[in-house]
């Protein structure tokens, strides 16, 4: 090892002066990095920490715990996967549930097996049905998400007043059954003027879907 180091030192003589300055500069860079590591670490949020320890390998569980902003974006979809995995979602042609990001999040995070377009007006398809008694999961939205609700024919009521879905519905007894939901912008007394509603088509009238 000693001769190895000695060899390295001897070989430095073959480097031109400008090269030696550059080597010294990179050495300085390494020293500065080590000296400033913890200072830099303390400057950013937890999301930009280099060595932050996470309790959970499940990134979505971590998100629910520490990222209210993203939680509000994905809460509806995660709740859907919990209460009705493998469901089919119908989007009426006129409904803004057809926003381009909606289907992607349904597939990626909502565990749906299919998203289909149906003709007609979503509110007309909803008819006069009041989904309120059938709501099994809901949330108020947040910085990146709309207020939402899922209405099903049966099941335990799961509410999410904090805005980050708690996941309690995962034990839903009827969640094995494949269900079909209609996506509706349901007029509501919210800041947005609506709730994003997924309603089980079994609750709709015969003339509906």
């Amino acid at each position: 090892m000693g001769s190895y180091q000695q060899g390295a030192l001897v070989s430095l003589r073959r480097v031109q002066p400008a090269g030696l300055v550059l080597l010294a500069g990179v050495s300085l860079l390494a020293v500065v990095n080590v000296a400033q590591f913890s200072t830099v670490e303390g400057r950013g949020s937890v999301f930009f920490s280099a060595v932050h320890h996470r309790e959970n390998a499940d990134i979505l569980a971590e998100m629910r715990d520490e990222d209210a902003s993203s939680s509000s974006r994905y809460a509806l979809f995660l709740a859907l996967e919990d209460v009705a995995p493998g469901s089919v979602i119908l989007i009426a042609e006129d409904d803004s549930g057809g926003e381009e990001w909606f289907a992607g999040r349904l597939y990626a995070f909502g565990g749906v097996q299919d998203v289909e377009r149906v003709e007609g007006n979503a509110l007309d398809l909803l008819g006069g049905v009041d989904p309120t008694p059938f709501i099994v999961a809901d949330g108020p939205g947040g910085p990146r998400g709309e207020p939402w609700a899922i209405a099903m024919e049966s099941g335990d009521v799961v509410t999410d007043p904090s805005g980050s879905f708690s996941g309690e519905a995962s034990a839903h007894p009827d969640s094995i059954e494949v269900r079909t939901f209609l996506a509706v912008r349901w007029p509501a007394d919210t800041e947005e003027g609506y709730r994003r509603l997924l309603i089980d088509v079994g609750l709709l009238s015969e003339e509906g879907v």
Partner: peptide, 8 residues
């Protein structure tokens, strides 16, 4: 060790 980090 769950070393991953993420944001939106």
């Amino acid at each position: 060790l769950n070393t991953y980090t993420y944001h939106s």
